[in-house]
């Protein structure tokens, strides 16, 4: 489907309203985020090779937020997401399943997983598929820990665990592989990114590639980067998963979203994550 030529009437009207907004001029770029006074976060960087000519710069969603929201992420005590990280840490250290193992039995401590968030989703040769962090947690639970009922993909417990794994990787450079065995899923994700969904006939790209920095109603559109996920949304007053956010976006197009954890959303997560290659892992971030 061609994103340029298939603009529906409603979508065209929305884009017109967006175009009339204040635009990128009132987004303050050039600020740096340092968490706890020690973790340097790259919030603006050169785009990955495949986005050259599309973006001059890739921006973390942090750049699009107000001073108050930005500040909330700069200190772990002020970041409410860290409450959920602590709950994830408790679960990490607690045996589950028939094997009597906790996550810590194999992984020692969460910090040993510092490199995980930056490289996921990634190809898993044993399963012959792209795996997200969530799928990896379920794999550990069912294949190594003897857990009969693993965490639901978007359950609070899962989000807590993924937030813990992200938190220990903050500051690492997002670097998901898009070639080799990942190429097929990446291509599928790219196709979804540029496909228009719903009655509004909106693709990811129309908002997050063509109109980032512009206003949608009173809110600034971001580039839709996922380096800050799971992210604490002020709206939800809880941490939100990548797939939950994808679902919300497609629902807002008045389309029928793919299921959370579906191969389509896994592929889309891989593709969108790769658009942020070069940014830092920020999760759990704070967003509106």
């Amino acid at each position: 489907m061609n994103k340029k030529t298939l603009l529906g009437g409603t979508a065209a009207a929305i884009v017109a309203v967006v175009a009339a907004g204040v635009g990128f001029a009132d987004i303050r770029t050039g600020d740096s985020l340092v968490i706890n006074g020690e973790i340097q976060i790259v919030t603006e960087t050169a785009p990955p090779a495949f986005l050259e000519g599309v973006f001059n710069t890739v921006y973390s969603g942090w750049v699009f937020r107000t001073d108050e929201t930005r500040a909330m992420q700069a200190d772990d005590f002020d970041n409410p997401a860290m409450l959920y990280v602590e709950q994830g840490q408790t679960a990490f250290d607690t045996p589950m399943g028939t094997e009597g193992k906790s996550c810590a039995s194999c992984h020692d401590n969460a910090e040993s997983l510092a490199g995980v968030r930056a490289t996921y989703p990634k190809w898993d040769a044993a399963h012959g598929a792209i795996q997200t962090v969530e799928m990896q947690v379920i794999e550990c639970q069912t294949e190594r820990m003897g857990v009969a009922e693993p965490y639901g993909y978007d359950s609070q417990q899962m989000r807590n665990m993924v937030a813990l794994i992200a938190s220990v990787g903050r500051g690492q450079t997002v670097n998901v592989a898009i070639d080799g065995p990942a190429a097929d899923a990446w291509e599928k994700g790219r196709e979804i990114y540029y496909t228009q969904y719903g009655q509004m006939e909106l693709s990811c790209a129309q908002c997050h590639e063509n109109n980032y920095g512009n206003l949608i109603r009173a809110d600034h559109l971001s580039q839709g980067q996922v380096n800050g996920f799971p992210t604490y949304r002020l709206k939800n007053a809880n941490i939100v998963s990548v797939h939950n956010r994808f679902r919300g976006c497609i629902r807002d197009t008045r389309g029928e979203p793919y299921a959370i954890g579906s191969p389509e959303f896994v592929a889309l997560e891989l593709y969108v994550a790769s658009r942020g290659n070069g940014l830092s892992v920020e999760g759990p971030a704070v967003r509106n």
């Binding site: 206003l215 949608i216 109603r217 009173a218 809110d219 600034h220 559109l221 949304r233 709206k235 939100v240 939950n244 956010r245 919300g248 976006c249 629902r251 807002d252 509106n288």
Partner: peptide, 8 residues
């Protein structure tokens, strides 16, 4: 209070 663009 900002009216959000997307319900999400």
């Amino acid at each position: 209070v900002t009216i959000g663009g997307c319900g999400g």
